[in-house]
Computed example of a mutant assay.
Amino acid sequence: MKKAKLFTMAAALVTSLVVFMGCPQPTSGGGGGGGGGETYVGDAVAAYNEANYYVYLESTTGVQDNDSELYAFDGTCALADATSTGSGIPEGSVALKVTNTGSAAGWSAGGWTTATSADMSAYNALVFYVLAKPTEFNGQLKVKIGGTSESPEIAVQFTADGTWKKVQVHLDQFTGIDKTAITKPFIFVSEDTDFNDIFYLDNIYYTHIDGFTYTPPTIPSPTTVPPTPSESASNVISILSQGTYTDVTGTNWGTDWDAAECETISVNTATNIKKITLTGWGLGVEGWTTFDITGKTTLHIDYWTANGTALSIKVVDFGNDGSYDGGDDKEITVPLTTVTQNNWTGVDLDFSGLETKGHIAQILVLPNGGAANQIYYFGNMYFK
């Protein structure tokens, strides 16, 4: 089933930038540290060698890859050469200047794409340099990589003090992707709400750093079963239950167009728990023949989370033609007012505002602006 694109990649190729993709074999780069943290940030040192895989490099060192392009996503930012940043330039004489154009609500994004995939599996670090000034940057910078799918966004912790910072992100943090076939070697997302705010990037490359490790955080999971619903089966259309109801048949938790991970797990006697990791924009639930919820006004969910901070649910009706994008599709998104952690929590979401209810085709689980990699466990989901 086709999904509408969240971003349109408007080609904003900066013609004077030189983009290089280096040799495929890694070597040990300088500097270690950073084990266990999200990123390692140190003083900017202009150090590179020919064996690294370069995403953005001005020097003629390395092998040029002419199929690389630099994009601004959907006009959210302007990209330009910068020969002066107020604090020198780590490599060469030109850095990349990123200016928030204000065309999106509180974010901008861009990055490099390649027509030919690259194998990054032998490297353990993505290294880049970033500079921002306190008067020109008030947001959060995040990075991700990808191929046919994209990794979660990784938050970059650095001080916007007008000096260059060297950032090392361990590749183990980029989950849910095939690192042997990377075609999006660097994507940045800036959550900055101020129009015309600026940051700079330079000297972006992959390498192997001896002693650079990453220990994923331990995230608790539920040890008790979800509550047993008390609603009469005759009043319920169930998408998910633990045997209390007969669920809608043909349901697929996860699609080929969403950006999330979902698996079915058991918790004690409950054998149909859905563990949902929101690695990107959200999870799609579909697969059934469209069904009718006329007369139903509420979607009930029993959920459990240890790190979730925000969540919303979208319900999509395909209209009388029963097909996607047929001109009469209707949808509504309802956020959770609050998210409770470390307990099974039941919520009733009001979907009475959905204009048509005769051909329900999709339910989307969305992070609603929350942190990347929120994990939710769903025990029950039903309309009533």
Rank of each mutant, 00 (worst) to 15 (best):
N124H: 07
A132F: 01
G35N: 05
S93D: 13
Y48R: 09
G33L: 06
L79R: 12
T39V: 10
L96M: 13
A115N: 11
T76I: 11
L131W: 10
S149A: 15
V98R: 05
A51I: 07
G86R: 00
G86Y: 02
V98E: 01
V55L: 01
T85R: 00
G34M: 03
V63E: 13
N138Y: 09
T61K: 09
G30W: 05
D161Y: 01
T148W: 08
L141G: 01
P134G: 09
E150W: 06
N66D: 13
P90F: 00
L131C: 15
E136R: 12
S84T: 14
T113W: 07
E58T: 03
K166M: 05
I89E: 04
T116W: 05
K165W: 01
L126A: 03
E150G: 08
W112F: 11
S59M: 02
A118I: 13
W164V: 04
K97T: 00
D67Q: 14
G146E: 07
S68M: 15
A155K: 06
L70W: 10
V94P: 05
S93Y: 08
E50T: 09
V41G: 00
G111P: 06
V169K: 00
G42N: 00
K133D: 09
D74Q: 15
E150R: 10
V98C: 05
Y54T: 08
S59E: 08
A118Q: 14
K166T: 00
T76A: 09
A51L: 15
T39G: 01
A95Y: 04
T163F: 02
L126P: 00
E136D: 15
A47G: 10
A109L: 10
M120V: 05
G37T: 04
T101A: 07
Q157D: 08
S108Q: 06
K165C: 02
V167G: 02
L70C: 12
T83C: 09
N138E: 08
T135L: 09
Y123R: 12
F73I: 11
G106T: 14
A46I: 04
G111H: 04
V169D: 00
A109F: 06
S151F: 04
A80R: 15
A44R: 00
N124I: 04
S117L: 06
E58C: 03
T60R: 07
A82I: 11
Y54N: 05
V143Y: 06
V94A: 06
K144C: 14
T113Y: 09
G31C: 04
D43P: 06
S59N: 08
G146T: 11
D65Q: 14
Y123Q: 10
F128L: 07
P152V: 12
K165L: 01
E69Y: 12
T61L: 11
Y123I: 07
V94M: 08
G86D: 02
S68A: 11
I145L: 10
A80E: 12
W164I: 07
T116A: 13
F73Y: 15
V98N: 06
N52Q: 11
V130I: 08
T101Y: 05
T83Q: 13
G139M: 14
V94G: 05
G35Y: 06
G42M: 02
E150C: 07
G31W: 00
T39R: 02
E153A: 08
F158A: 01
F73A: 13
V98W: 03
